[in-house]
Amino acid sequence: MNLFAQQLINGIFIGSVYGLFAIGYTLVFGVLDILNLAHAAVFTLGGLVALWLVQSAEMSIWVAFPLATLFSGILGLIINAVAFVPLRHRPDTYFSGLISSIALAIVFESAAIGIFGARTVRFPISTIAVHIWQIAGVTITSLQIEIVMIAACLMAGLTRFLRRSRSGKAIRAVAENERAARLLGVHVDGIIAFTFFISSALGGAAGILFGLYFGALSPDMGRSIELKGLAVIVLGGMGSIPGAIIGGIAFGLSEVLTVAISGTSNLRDAVAFTVLFAILLLRPSGLFGRRQIRET
């Protein structure tokens, strides 16, 4: 029973990182109806840059974290300017945007390998002080708590920002109807660029937390989370932020529980992708989605 509780807790921790990553995905999709497949490359670069700041520039992680997050946000602005803005008025913009973001992802990933090397690298042990608590036979580390707290704060902050602030409302207006928002005086292009900034900053933050949690970072770590992120946003409903959070935690739980029940890590992703597949066939708008995505 303790083992089960332990797995549940681990699932929630890793799931909160998935959720944070997926929010960035779903935010851009909600506004533009476009999948930004370079999001996973930003995740990787965010983590690697944070590591570089800690290791080579000898910064505290608490300084490196916001700096690397800011850097990731700037990558988002680059993605928007290079891969999406030039294609916006093409008739096949959904398809070509997908391709150009793949192209940029390849360029980013090769830059990551070129600059940081192809090896798996680790945060130094002294990066963050880790306390370990045993509560009722369940082990929790201070690192896990910190990760969940940071993820929760970012998610709550984003939700509040979208609900209350003027720019947040503008983002939602563009997501609802770009043309109407433009007519009402919303600076649509600026809002789209801003959305990319937030989305990529969150993706980079997820990469840093992922690197801290597992202790290891590699230039290809974005690949597996790319697919998981897609699964999470489909599960939660494309464009839905609460859906991405709950989907992320559900996905994290399904992973650890599959391993716990089957006793092997080989089937870890199988359940999740089968569920993804089933959801697309049975309820393609996801658990919290509102969009019509089947043919009408």
Partner: peptide, 20 residues
């Protein structure tokens, strides 16, 4: 290796932007 991969991505980007 990284340069080869980067060239691959760059070609793709140039084609999608300028030669749809």
């Amino acid at each position: 290796g990284p340069v080869r991969m980067g060239v691959n991505g760059f070609i793709l980007l140039m084609v999608i932007l300028f030669l749809p």
